[in-house]
Structure formats: C-alpha cells, structure tokens
C-alpha cells in the first residue's frame, strides 16, 4: 500500500487531554497519547491507574468528561462509533467470546456485521485460525467451553483481527494464562504484528510483558501519564514509579 503522507503525518490514534471522573473521583487526568501506524503502545500501570478506562474511552465504552479522541484523523462521535469500533479489534482478559457461538461464528463476527459474503467470511475465518495456530478443521465447530484458556485467547485475537482493523485494543489479554502459554502467545503476538503491521494499544500491569511487546511504553499513575518511553529508555528511567516496576524484574 502506498501512503501519501502530509507532513507531519497524523497518528492513527490521537488521545488529546482526556479526563474522566466517577463520582467526583478522577480516574483519568488530562491524558494525551498517540499511537502511530504499526506501533504498539503499552499502557503500563498498577490496578486502578486508569489504564483500562483509557482503553475503553478509545472505543467509546466509556465517554470521557473532557478531551478528544481522534482515530484515523476523525473525532470519535456518536454516529462514527459503530464504524470506528469495527476498525478496532478488541481483546479482553478471558477472551470475551460469545459462549453460545462456535469458534467460527465468533471469529466471523465483524466480517458478518460488515456484510461480507458467507463464503468470504468462511475463508477469512480459516485463514485467521491458521494465523493464530489453531487447525480450522479441528476447532472451527467447537464452542468456547471446549477450549483451553490459551486457545480461547487465540480465538479472541483471531476475532479481533478478522476484518483487518488497523488498530487492536488489548486489555491484559494474557494475564489469566499460565506462564508457559503466556510466553507462547506473547511470542506469537509479536510475530503476528510483524506480519500484519497492525498497530496496538496494549494494557498490562506486567513490566516484563510491557518491555517485550512495546514499541513505546506509557506509564500511568493515578490517572495521569508519568512517562512515555521506548523499552530501552524505560529500563534506564529514574522516576519512582518506573523504578518500582523495574524492581519487580530483578527477582527473576
């Protein structure tokens, strides 16, 4: 694909001065971040730092009190929401698969919503299951309850990628997996990203995962961005919160 970039090129996703409060308690305080094409921005922070809320602001599950979010150069407004959401894959911790649908129906959801022809959807589902390392013949007709945690998460990622979105939103996608499966999926995710060039906004509280997955890390603390850094810069960061996260690395 050829990009005719104006200078400066608009980022794929721009989060501008976003604030949000629940019952007077601020959850996000003036957060500004960008995600460029093909980039993985990791939101790292403790529980309650606002990272999940920020992710939900991006796809409009949460409506910020102030600030603006632009996706593909357009402000995400009510009428744009459905269109934008179909161009942002969404993966959550336990996969969020529909329990009453087969793997095939789950993965084919967004293409179906977008009105693809059934044969085209079926072909795409097969392609995606292969891509995430599941044999279509074996897994296509299964229900989520017949899958292991790691397999569910693979299906979740396949579903998120189904319509070829330019951006993935991932909310601690590997947190509930055993360490071996988690490492496998992390490696595979990196490989997928390399192949597809899909950008990602990736929420995690695991600094090891952040360093592994990120092109840039945004460290959130009490709803504010404390630091935005590449993994190399982050390892050398001196701030207290960054050091607190890095201290967790030294043990193992």
């Amino acid at each position: 694909m050829v990009y005719h970039r104006k200078v400066p090129a608009p980022a794929l996703l721009e989060i501008c001065d976003v604030s949000y409060a629940i019952g007077g308690r601020p959850v996000l305080r003036g957060v500004s971040l960008t995600v460029g094409e093909g980039e993985t921005l990791v939101l790292l922070g403790r529980s309650g730092s606002g990272k999940t809320t920020l992710l939900k602001c991006v796809n409009g599950l949460v409506r910020p009190d102030a600030g603006e979010i632009r996706f593909e150069g357009r402000t995400i407004a009510r009428e744009e929401l459905i269109r934008s959401r179909r161009r942002m894959g969404y993966v959550i911790q336990d996969g969020g698969l529909f329990p009453h649908w087969t793997v095939e129906a789950n993965v084919g959801l967004v293409p179906r919503l977008e009105g693809w022809a059934p044969e085209k959807v079926a072909g795409r589902v097969e392609e995606l299951l292969r891509l995430v390392g599941l044999d279509p013949a074996e897994y296509r007709a299964r229900y989520p309850r017949q899958l292991s945690g790691g397999q569910k998460q693979r299906v979740g990622i396949a579903r998120a990628l189904a319509a070829g979105p330019p951006l993935l939103l991932l909310d601690e996608p590997f947190a509930a997996l055993d360490p071996i499966t988690r490492y496998e999926l992390q490696r595979q995710f990196l490989e997928l990203r390399r192949q597809l060039g899909t950008a990602a906004l990736f929420v995690t509280h695991d600094v090891r995962e952040a360093l592994m997955m990120a092109t840039r890390i945004a460290l959130l603390r009490d709803g504010a961005v404390e630091l935005v850094a590449t993994p190399e810069q982050f390892r050398a960061a001196q701030g207290a919160e960054a050091r607190a996260f890095l201290a967790g690395l030294e043990g193992g």
Partner: peptide, 11 residues
C-alpha cells in the same frame, strides 16, 4: 464483559 465485547466489536 460479553455485552461490552459485543459493543466494542461494533454491534
């Protein structure tokens, strides 16, 4: 979480 996923997928 399932309903939220559904909304997030653009249903």
């Amino acid at each position: 979480a399932i309903c939220e996923s559904a909304a997030a997928m653009g249903m």
